[in-house]
Amino acid sequence: MSVDAALVQRCLASDPAAARELVERFQTDVLAVCRRLLAHVHDAEDVTQEVFLRVFRSLRTWDNQRPLRPWILSIAVNRCRTWIGRRAKGPELADYLHEAPDQRPTDDSSELVREIRAAVDALRDEYREVFVLFHEHGRSYEEISEVVDRPVGTVKTWLHRARLELLDRLKSRGLVPEEEQPKPQT
């Protein structure tokens, strides 16, 4: 029996220590994915809590032949999609509530990271999900395929398109240096 399966078995036996272990093991990943996909700290915390409610509700349906992390992340991604859809229908917050002042030091690299993040936020939901999971969370194609419930080939295509869009954005923002023109021969 795998470590994941043993942990789930203990959770199903109503072992409070096992429940705590499961939450502590995956909460950072879930919270990070939710923060990146929702771009809102408090929404991310609410959705993370909702994700774990659903995880514990449906632990019996988990296939113990498969790894637990992609399954939990797939629930997180689905909840984020639902939340984004719900948020789109709800009233819009005032602009000043969206953005908190950034206290981080600004240099070239942080500016580039901010640009990349802004570009990622502007991506389509599917592209953003695979980009965040691949480049920011280091998940493999196979794992992402399980999380988004699409074939590996589709994941690769989405990731490729996401990169192209990002490059387009970086070029439009002048962050890709222009090619040095060859000096005219005298």
Partner: peptide, 29 residues
Amino acid sequence: ARVLLSALSVPNEPVSVPVGFTDTILSAV
């Protein structure tokens, strides 16, 4: 691609879990 690689090579800021977040989740569960 080099620009993208240099941007992606910058480590993400670590996600800090709020204090008592685990207990909040467990009590909700």
